[in-house]
Simulated assay, not measured.
Amino acid sequence: MKIALYGQYYKDNTEDIIEKVLRVFDRYAPQVLIEANFYTVLNEKGLLPKPFDTFSEHEELQEGIDLFISIGGDGTMLRAATLVRDKNIPIVGINAGRLGFLATVQQENIEALLPQIFTGGYKISSRSLLSLDYQGMSPEDSALDFALNEVTVSRKDTTSMITIDVKLNGDHLNSYWADGLIISTPTGSTGYSLSCGGPVLMPDVTSLVITPIAPHNLNARPLVIPDDTDIELRVSSREEQHLVSLDSRIISVNVETVLRLKKAGFTIKLVEFPQEKFLDTLRKKLLWGEDKRN
């Protein structure tokens, strides 16, 4: 088996996580590649017992890689998705931060769960993405024109509201007066959209969520739409530009630019272990059942 390893270094627990991962690797002897920056940090900390091959970019992920391991939080998982892209390499998230919805393997469970990737004791959860296109998009932005969690439009350099005109399949939906607007995938429904009052979607539903950010009109509510909908956004503002974010990547775009969003033509494959299912994570994260009256 060939495994790519990527992560962020956290002084509190990365050493322990790497030691546990390497112990599992010693038992099953996979071929391992480590992302170059992460490799440098681990080497400087003396955490690697031997040299490993490295990679830096999406293009350097060789054919035949069976698994991609991300060590960090959900943000690290989102960056891992930009490396994997459309290569259909399953991603395992080892959580080095707070409880996350994407990085679900907890530090204390590494040696119990990680061996299951070698024995087939897991299933694949395919996650849909959003793609973005607009006239004048740079080649650099076009190369990363997708989002696993959400695409967000928001104001820039102003405290005034912006107006976001929305069309669905060519039909006018609404003109939102708000600080911004979130278009969320099912995966992203537990993120920014949830904090703005959006609903939680199960990962395998074929829907998207439109969630306004601090709307001027209180009757502007989140809306669930089919994920095969073609979405057009056009922002009006007192400023010359507004912001568009694809997960954690931010672009400045001229106002009145027509943004075209649709479901991406590929999915991100996440590894799900029987012991760390989405509903288990949801209960833990939202503290369901903590109320003693339940």
Rank of each mutant, 00 (worst) to 15 (best):
E272F: 05
I268M: 10
G180D: 14
V166M: 04
M202P: 04
V200E: 00
L282D: 04
A220P: 01
T54V: 07
W177M: 03
T190S: 01
T229N: 07
E60S: 10
R234H: 03
S142K: 15
V244R: 08
L261V: 13
G198M: 05
N88A: 14
T185R: 12
K167G: 02
D26C: 06
R238Q: 13
S56Y: 03
T206S: 06
L144H: 11
L83A: 08
L218V: 14
E108L: 10
G198C: 04
L33K: 11
I94F: 08
P115Y: 02
T54S: 05
S131H: 02
L47Y: 05
K262T: 07
K285T: 06
T257N: 04
Y6G: 12
S252I: 10
P90L: 13
F273M: 11
T257V: 02
R27T: 01
L218I: 12
L33F: 09
R27W: 06
R98T: 05
E256S: 14
A147F: 10
P203R: 04
G265D: 15
T211F: 07
Y176H: 14
G120L: 02
T163M: 15
K87W: 04
E256V: 02
L102P: 01
L61W: 08
I117E: 09
V255W: 04
L286S: 01
E60Y: 01
